[in-house]
């Protein structure tokens, strides 16, 4: 073990003990290959077993370990102490979410937003199994693939100033997910989903700050998905003027 150490500030909150969150500082042995998540595991194993945080895959696939690292939403497994050393690292639960305990946040609203956009293929005609699978050309797949890479980590919601101001806003990940299904050639649910898009709390709650796309660990670019949906919504608005439903 090296002699070098790094200080880590963690915002702690244990609802049964603390009336409000407070910062606790830990000193962790520093190695350049240590991720923030591994540093947290070191703290839990050797310094304070009571500390709570979510994690699972350790390789930016499960989307569990989202947290604010020095005020920026990041995945704990994808950010390394060497990026901050010798400065101290401060860890806080994801912004814009209620704290459940320590670095664990309540994701209920986020999950509900994801569910609200009808995130499943709504087929046009019911094909019989014997007719074989729905086929897609590489071009048709390229239209939505990027937006299907979301791991639901919630970093974009922690980054979004509009979600911070108004929790009714559907938000970046859910709208990118909506775009993913609307852009899929096998899907026929666009008319249903456009009603969600067209609302004030749909795409029109977004003012294109673009921070969601900056923090996205999977390069989903939800801001682009939302701006493209704004164009679709504007077309839908024009059509709606002549053909109200």
């Amino acid at each position: 073990m090296s002699e070098l150490t790094v200080e880590i500030d963690i915002l702690r909150y244990r609802p049964e003990l603390d009336s409000e969150p407070f910062t606790q500082t830990f000193e962790v042995p520093y190695t350049p290959e240590l991720s923030v998540l591994e540093a947290l595991q070191y703290i839990k194993d050797h310094l304070d077993s009571s500390i709570s945080f979510r994690w699972s895959c350790r390789m930016a696939i499960c989307g569990s370990c989202g947290m604010m690292v020095n005020g920026v939403p990041k995945l704990g497994c994808k950010v390394f102490l060497r990026d901050y050393y010798p400065k101290k690292v401060s860890l806080e639960p994801l912004a814009n979410f209620p704290i459940e305990r320590d670095l664990v946040v309540v994701m209920d609203d986020f999950i509900q937003k994801l569910e609200s956009v009808k995130p499943y293929i709504i087929p046009g005609e019911n094909k019989c199994l014997s007719e074989g699978p729905y086929q897609q050309t590489p071009e048709q797949m390229a239209k939505y693939k990027q937006y299907s890479m979301c791991i639901n980590c919630g970093l974009c919601y922690a980054a979004c100033p509009q979600y911070a101001l108004d929790k009714k806003f559907t938000g970046p990940a859910a709208l990118a997910l909506l775009a993913r299904y609307n852009r899929d050639s096998r899907d026929n649910g666009e008319a249903q989903r456009m009603k969600i898009v067209n609302q004030e709390e749909g795409v029109w709650g977004c003012t294109f700050v673009g921070y969601c796309s900056v923090v996205c660990p999977k390069d989903v670019d939800p801001a682009a998905a939302i701006q493209l949906l704004k164009v679709e919504s504007s077309k839908d608005y024009l059509i709606g003027m002549f053909k109200p439903d």
């Binding site: 009603k195 969600i196 067209n198 609302q199 004030e200 029109w204 504007s234 608005y237």
Partner: peptide
């Protein structure tokens, strides 16, 4: 119930 926003007009301008 979904309420359509009139934002497209202003967004277009």
């Amino acid at each position: 119930t979904y309420v359509r926003s009139h934002e497209p007009v202003f967004w277009g301008l």
